[in-house]
Simulated assay, not measured.
Amino acid sequence: MAYRTDFGSIHQRPLGVFGAPARYVQGPGATWELGRELQRLGFQGPVLFIAGGTAQRTLAPIWQEQLPPVGLQPVIDAFGGECSESEIKRLVAMSDHHGFCAVVGAGGGKASDTARAVADELGLPVVITPTLASTDSPCSALSVIYSDEGSVTGFRFYNRHPELLLVDTEVIAKAPKRQLVAGLGDGLATWFEARATHESHRNNVVGGKPLTSALMLAKLCHDILLADGPAACAAIDAGVPTPALERIVEANILLSGLGFEIGGLALAHAVHNGISTIPGSHHNLHGEKVVIGLHTQLVLEGQPQSEIDEVFRYCQQVGLPTTLAQVGIDASNDAELMAIAERSVIPGETSHNEPFEVTAIAVMRALKAADQLGGAYL
């Protein structure tokens, strides 16, 4: 395990690096294939399931029915809600009583992050079965670590990705629409951050230079989000998987996940990390805060107003935040804005992947300007 608080360089030579899950499975009713997929990977014996509330209610009965006939015993533990050091330590301690062959994370992004951390501590392979399309976390080989109160404290980076990422779109179609919309916000930043990292010739999250494929995947993610986002929201309102929802789920989870790791992160996620230090923001979802970071990034980069307007219009259309107040931040509180800005430019933060020097005062000014622009889209 590598435990760092930054996304700094791993390699000295300018090598391109591409990392991804070993296998991706998506579709309606995919949960029913989990036993066969785990058997295909050669797993036998007890499996630790770190399960969020929806997973416990809707998926656990399927696991308990399908896994024993193929030689797997699900040991299900309720996820505590935060990917914190204390939660990781609690779950690792369960291995004292079981000889687990793998760890499965089932739930939202924080459950995925926790499962990766626990699997790494135990030296086991990890499988992710998200019940939400709210972040691109399931695809990655890292965990965002939070305090028990919900502030970002650092990151863990791992040597391998999930062995399997299995996405049941019937489950995701029945999740709250706000969760899917937050995933749109997280995914929307992917192309713009990968573009900035490429322009600055900085490293991606897996420790190498972004390859051409990274930029193409990030741009494809962007294009699908713009084309299918509203129709996917309608499918969630109806509670059914549709072709548009299938494409958005793939974009939110797989394309955005690959795009951010092999394309790179920039100011949008750094501002998210700053916003997360403000208690008033803790009720907001990851993607809701990331999209505020995206508005800030585009303003700070001086991008064409047509591009900025397109992003704001999209956010208005699908229900993403356009102002600081919508994520619990007082735009008139300069001390609060400076705290966000200073956190976003600490050494090693992804804000330094921008193709110019980024300072706290510049971020603070961009936060204010973006908020002013966003007010027209309420």
Rank of each mutant, 00 (worst) to 15 (best):
L265Q: 11
L265P: 08
A266L: 14
L267S: 03
L267N: 04
A268L: 08
A268S: 15
H269K: 01
H269D: 06
H269C: 05
H269T: 11
H269A: 04
H269V: 08
A270D: 12
A270C: 10
A270Q: 09
A270P: 08
A270H: 11
A270I: 13
V271D: 04
V271T: 02
V271N: 02
H272Q: 15
H272N: 15
N273Y: 07
N273H: 12
G274Y: 03
G274T: 04
G274A: 02
G274S: 03
G274L: 02
G274P: 00
I275L: 15
I275N: 03
S276D: 11
S276G: 03
S276V: 09
T277K: 09
T277F: 09
I278G: 02
I278C: 06
I278W: 05
P279Q: 09
P279L: 12
G280L: 11
G280M: 07
S281D: 07
H282S: 10
H283L: 06
L285W: 03
H286L: 12
H286E: 10
H286C: 12
H286P: 10
H286M: 12
H286I: 12
G287D: 09
K289L: 15
K289A: 11
V290L: 09
V290S: 07
V291A: 02
V291P: 02
I292T: 05
I292A: 01
G293W: 09
L294E: 03
L294K: 04
H295S: 06
H295P: 03
T296N: 03
Q297R: 03
Q297H: 04
Q297I: 06
L298H: 01
L298S: 00
L298R: 00
V299H: 05
V299L: 05
V299P: 03
L300T: 03
E301S: 15
E301H: 14
G302D: 15
Q303S: 11
Q303K: 13
Q303I: 07
Q303A: 13
Q305T: 09
Q305M: 10
Q305E: 15
S306M: 02
E307T: 13
E307Q: 14
E307W: 02
E307C: 10
I308V: 12
I308Y: 01
I308W: 00
D309C: 01
D309Q: 04
E310Q: 07
E310P: 00
E310A: 07
V311K: 02
V311G: 01
F312N: 00
R313A: 01
Y314N: 00
Y314C: 00
Y314S: 00
C315H: 07
C315V: 04
C315I: 07
C315G: 03
